[in-house]
Design a protein around this nucleic acid. Structure first.
Lengths: 201, 201
DNA sequence: GCCACGCATGGCAGTTACTGTCAACAAGTG
DNA sequence: CACTTGTTGACAGTAACTGCCATGCGTGGC
């Protein structure tokens, strides 16, 4: 046994508090809007102290954005797992599809959050800031795939930005249509636009 | 005379206070970093009260980002002025070149500010948030140029995002190279990447 | 010249996000 | 049992931001 001897009781407790805070925050924020909810209300609902909140999240915005952050690592991981013979447009489409599929799988959970983020300036700002990290990761991964130097060629940077442009467009259209438009179809349309640029490497 | 009877003394006084605050802020921020400078220090250097500061700027970040905001309107204006027969890649290249040229014209003034923004998470977040407005403007302008409906075609959104991707890449490379790389050349390279996608409309 | 009005400003109190510090407590280890 | 490690809560403190009100300064009517 001991396949995971590291998953101690303490770690599970941490996970519990984290999800408890996230749930409480998302419910309150979706209900009253971002600005009208204070940290005190969130921690009261979760049953912890304010100090504990800031041990789990760096800022009020982080509670909402956090669940999208982990997706960044998934994108890069998926891109790295793609066969290197695959053209960039196909590989990137698959990589970007990972977080979109996660949203599409639980629309009732994610749609509200996505809408909240896209329509709240403070949250949107943090979300975009996190995407910068995704972009750098994607760019370096692409550069190593293609044997290019990130410092000299603009292609990796541009390709990463174009992929995230597709991601953003899909998210926005999905949000604005209240989830009625099909994410898969939107992703196809977005990548159809950028594919000619991605594959002229 | 009276070519501008609206430019009263009061308005010029407002402009004076605004620039005074901006100058004081930029100097202090470039010197000590964004987080280490307080509003109190800025207003002390500018000789006004803290309350007055927040009558001119919505937040501490705004002092830095503000000067980049007006560029957004310029981009759209330039795009609208372009002949409609021009392919999107050329028209967008010219539109995006407007703010880049403004930076390239006064490198000693703008390089520090651009670096400060790109390297300070809080400032970067606000900057990106403002760009969202640029993007919407560009997208609607492009849609009307091409007679498309923003609500049904993804092309205008994607084209606007690609143009801003080029803008961001140029800014980042210019900033990372300490101004040594030529903005015009970087712009050409970036648009060379996206041109195949932009012109397959 | 004088008064009234608009408008920018400053001071002040208050809210809220966020941080440093310390003591208490629980769990695992020798 | 002593010791270490990790999590938590309470408290004080900083700094960003806002509402309110009084003050002064320029402009226009009389």
């Amino acid at each position: 046994m001991a396949s995971r001897p590291e998953v101690t009781l303490a770690q599970r407790k941490r996970q519990l508090v984290s999800t408890e805070l996230t749930e409480a925050a998302l419910q309150l924020l979706a209900l009253k809007g971002f600005d009208s909810v204070t940290i005190d209300e969130i921690v009261a609902a979760a049953g912890v102290s304010q100090r504990t909140f800031f041990r789990y999240f760096r800022s009020k915005e982080d509670v909402v954005v956090q669940f999208l952050v982990d997706m960044g690592a998934d994108i890069r991981a998926d891109l790295a797992a793609r066969p290197s013979a695959e053209p960039p447009s196909v590989a990137l489409r698959h990589a970007v599809w990972v977080p979109i599929a996660a949203c599409a799988d639980h629309p009732e959970r994610t749609l509200r959050v996505v809408q909240l983020i896209l329509r709240t300036p403070a949250l949107l700002a943090r979300f975009l800031e996190r995407q910068e990290q995704w972009r750098d990761d994607l760019a370096t991964e692409l550069a190593s795939r293609l044997g290019l130097d990130t410092g000299h060629a603009v292609y990796p940077q541009m390709a990463a930005r174009m992929a995230l442009a597709a991601f953003g467009t899909v998210l926005q259209r999905w949000s604005d249509s209240e989830g009625k438009e099909d994410p898969a179809e939107l992703t196809d349309q977005a990548f159809a636009v950028i594919a000619p640029a991605l594959d002229t490497i």
